[in-house]
Write a protein that binds this DNA or RNA. Structure first.
Length: 223
DNA sequence: TCCTGATCATGG
DNA sequence: CCATGATCAGGA
């Protein structure tokens, strides 16, 4: 475990040093074992890169680099630079959180400053041979902030009014609500159709892949 | 091929 | 159970 980076510049320098390296090379530096596949280690890539960059370990509800206010997200991409997956943001409060405003929300806080770290991650490429790309720091611009806020408000309104069962993955332009649980039997508190307390599958907020694709395009001027 | 629901590991 | 890290995998 490295010491946490003391500045944004130091963090970026560490990232640039990783660009072009394979996960095998990085794992070797830290004497980590590489799993054959990610089926039983789905968070392995993210945790490896957190480790080598000096992120705060653990499952604490705070940014990966608390002093810098920066959240780290690995982004699996294909050979043409398109994201292969949506990006998990945070769990969704399903009990309404009366009066919670967008700027106070977990989603807004987490997305204030994100360090994206693309990883070439087509499933045909063995884990050890997958290459780390060039990291970039992203802060949502005004337009992005606006659409994120609109989506969040729409989703939170539906949740608060007992409409969680009407929420589909397609609800929201860039932000979506999807299951986030150990399995489909998991249950958490939520609001029923008539305002009554119910138990339902825990959900999380995700950024759609089409949205992160735009961020990559902006950054790298992809065709 | 893409999307959405389901799932896996770990730490507290 | 919740929050961290995400990807899997079947059906549309």
């Amino acid at each position: 475990m490295l010491t946490p980076p003391s500045s944004k510049e130091e963090l970026m320098a560490r990232c640039y040093a990783l660009a072009g390296l394979t996960l095998g090379q990085i794992a070797a530096q830290t004497q980590q074992q590489i799993p054959d596949n990610l089926q039983k280690y789905k968070g392995w890539v993210g945790q490896l890169l957190e480790h080598v960059l000096g992120a705060t370990a653990g499952s604490k509800a705070e940014p990966d680099f608390p002093q810098l206010g920066i959240e780290l997200k690995t982004l699996p991409v294909n050979a043409t630079g398109k994201p292969l997956e949506s990006t998990y943001v945070c769990v969704a409060p399903l009990t309404g959180e009366p009066g919670l405003q967008w700027h106070e929300s977990w989603v807004c806080q987490k997305l204030q400053q994100v360090l994206w770290l693309p990883v070439l991650a087509e499933r045909t490429i063995p884990l050890a041979d997958r290459v780390v790309g060039t990291a970039f720091l992203w802060r949502p611009n005004a337009a992005q902030q606006k659409v994120l806020q609109q989506d969040w408000e729409e989703l939170m309104d539906m949740i608060s009014l007992g409409g969680i069962h009407n929420i589909k993955g397609a609800t929201g332009k860039v932000l979506q609500l999807r299951p986030k649980a150990a399995n489909s039997r998991a249950r958490t508190d939520a609001i029923g159709a008539h305002g009554e307390p119910i138990k339902t599958l825990p959900r999380g907020f995700y950024l759609k892949a089409s949205f992160t694709a735009l961020l990559l395009q902006e950054q790298f001027q992809l065709a």
